[in-house]
Nucleic acid binder design. Structure first.
Lengths: 170, 170
DNA sequence: TCTGTTGTAATAATAAAAATTACATCTGGA
DNA sequence: TCCAGATGTAATTTTTATTATTACAACAGA
């Protein structure tokens, strides 16, 4: 760290809950898996709860997902944790006396909105179920090496970037 | 701040150079517009130079773009500044003894790669020329309120997110 | 009541980003 | 050649978002 890992940790929490629907699941137990502390886990769970993704009650170590994994998207989690915070950040401290600079940043905002929209569209297509499927595929892959064993969602959909593959700058 | 604004500042620098092809342009002058210090500007310029986006020589206050604005994409700048750093970060500090946690993060990586690919595709479609066009549109918009006055690239292309518009979580 | 847990606030520690300082090196002109 | 002004770059400090930690009231269940 210290790059933000809230989204990763939040998905971790939800996946962990989905994978342990039966047994007691305290924030301490989850924290052990993430290798962090229980209070941080509870903070993330609090955000997920406010985002209507998680159900949990005080003093009761049995958190539940509020919806089916296939109805929880990465974007849902992102919104719950980050609100409307963008992935790319403008510089809002340019010289106000320099109209050129101000307008360049404003022009950039339109462009960043494009990038944000595409990224969010991708996040909206990724469900918790897909993460779980990929997780399961990894586990079986360690022994048999099959693809998407339960395929409740098309995990092999791929994600071709319509602008073609990565090009060497030149 | 302190969200990263390197990309924004780098685009600012390139746009500023494109808009001032004639006069002397010292790093101090550019820094004035960004409202930062010359050394930071030179650091960014150094990265852009190494990315083959900028030409400049020691002691010579006349930086030039290495390519036409329409041949410089946002992704080019991103690569020059950030290399392969992703927009979303995995948590690489999960408990190694917890196979569940490890594999969840690995499953997440595949998903993040999707998001990254879409975001980069969007960045690849945005050129410096488009930023300049939007800048020009803003300036004229302040008086006449016209759209894309010089239209060297279709600035009004828009950026529909194929996953449909933003949905209220529910 | 007692133990264990959650929900939440407040504070500290960590680390990435930007700001700053310093200086060797170069250009162009006197 | 010498000087002023600039760049390129390294090193250090400051700032601040993120995570870690501490603390505790409120609640569940036995």
């Amino acid at each position: 760290m210290k790059y933000p890992t809230r989204l990763s940790d939040a998905v971790h929490i939800m996946a962990f809950i989905a994978l342990n629907p039966v047994e007691r699941l305290s924030s301490e137990k989850i924290a052990e898996s993430i290798h962090t502390n229980p209070a941080y886990v509870r903070q993330l769970m609090s955000a997920l709860r406010k985002g209507n993704l998680l159900l949990s009650t005080r003093g009761h170590p049995r958190p539940e997902l509020a919806r089916e994994p296939r109805d929880i998207t990465l974007l849902d989690a992102y919104r719950a944790l980050e609100g409307n915070k963008p992935l790319l950040h403008q510089d809002t401290h340019t010289n106000p006396a320099c109209g050129v600079g101000v307008n360049i940043q404003l022009a950039l905002r339109d462009c960043y909105d494009c990038v944000q929209a595409q990224a969010e569209a991708a996040m909206r297509r990724i469900t918790l179920q897909e993460v779980l499927d990929r997780y399961a595929a990894r586990l079986t892959g360690l022994e048999g090496h099959k693809e998407t064993p339960n395929g409740s969602q098309d995990s092999s959909r791929g994600c071709s970037a319509d602008g073609s593959a990565d090009s060497p700058e030149g």
